[in-house]
């Protein structure tokens, strides 16, 4: 059930260049059911910016009733968000959307988690839960540059982790799609730039692949029809899915990306 709650900030830290880790204390943590769900943050009580910011949940702790988000300082809204400090309250709507299906891979099988940039965070909770289920987890994380990379050490605790940077300042130079070519897996989960998702979906037309999509959103709850995408199997031309409430995670091939 979606809640709207004023949540107290526990901590906020810049963990890489323009990348912030924000942890809040929230009753709505009880409602989170899967990794890959997101929340909608209201960063200003006035009208600028007016709309909420969709931010994915990076990890959550039901016992402590806390969850952590990682976001990139990008525009006006996220810049305001970086100014918030521990003890302040923030208006959060969530949890929203449907996360990654962890039951698609069983104990002893291999899951490949591929993240690009600010698409990496939701894969962390997924990695934790898969590892706890006895799944062999392999991570491939792509960043623009070394200074923008984060969480490699945390992912390493759950399994093999490969990093690629576009400029070659860390890990292998290039894209995640180059690294994953040689890796065998039973199920692939990915989140990142649309071009990366398209390349991965194309590379594995017959494998079990789950993609988390990003789209400009209005309401985040399925009412405004801003974030729709077309269904692949659509003889009528009018079938659609909403990224916010039907997604953001879809099986590759389900919708056009």
């Amino acid at each position: 059930m979606i809640q709207k709650e004023l949540c107290k900030i526990i901590s906020q830290t810049e963990i890489a260049t323009n990348i912030y880790e924000l942890t809040v204390s929230a009753q709505l943590t009880r409602e989170i059911v899967a990794p890959g769900q997101f929340v909608h943050l209201r960063v200003a009580s006035g009208g600028d910016p007016l709309l909420r910011r969709p931010i994915s949940i990076c990890s959550y702790d039901r016992n402590k009733l806390q969850f952590t988000m990682i976001y990139r300082k990008e525009g006006h809204g996220t810049s305001l968000l970086t100014k918030m400090v521990a003890g302040m309250e923030i208006d959060i709507l969530g949890p929203l959307g449907n996360g990654f299906p962890i039951e698609e891979v069983s104990s002893g099988e291999t899951a490949l988690l591929v993240g690009g940039g600010i698409g990496v965070p939701p894969l962390y909770e997924l990695s934790n839960q898969l590892a706890a289920n006895g799944v062999h987890v392999i991570h491939v994380l792509g960043f623009q540059t070394r200074a923008a990379s984060f969480y490699e050490d945390k992912f390493l605790e759950n399994g093999e982790t490969y990093v690629a940077t576009v400029d070659g300042t860390y890990g292998s130079k290039g894209f995640v799609t180059d690294i994953i070519k040689d890796i065998q897996f039973d199920c692939l989960y990915t989140c990142g730039p649309t071009s990366m998702l398209q390349a991965i979906a194309k590379q594995y037309p017959d494998e079990k692949v789950f993609l988390s999509l990003e789209e400009r959103m209005g309401c985040g709850i399925g009412a405004c029809f801003a974030c729709v995408c077309k269904q692949t199997d659509d003889p009528t031309g009018v079938s659609y899915k909403k990224v916010c409430s039907d997604g953001p995670v879809f099986r590759a091939g389900e919708v056009l990306i």
């Binding site: 009208g47 910016p49 007016l50 400009r216 959103m217 209005g218 405004c224």
Partner: peptide, 13 residues
Amino acid sequence: TPRVAETNAGMLN
């Protein structure tokens, strides 16, 4: 899409 864009104190749809 994109079908929405924010503006100061408003949005375009």
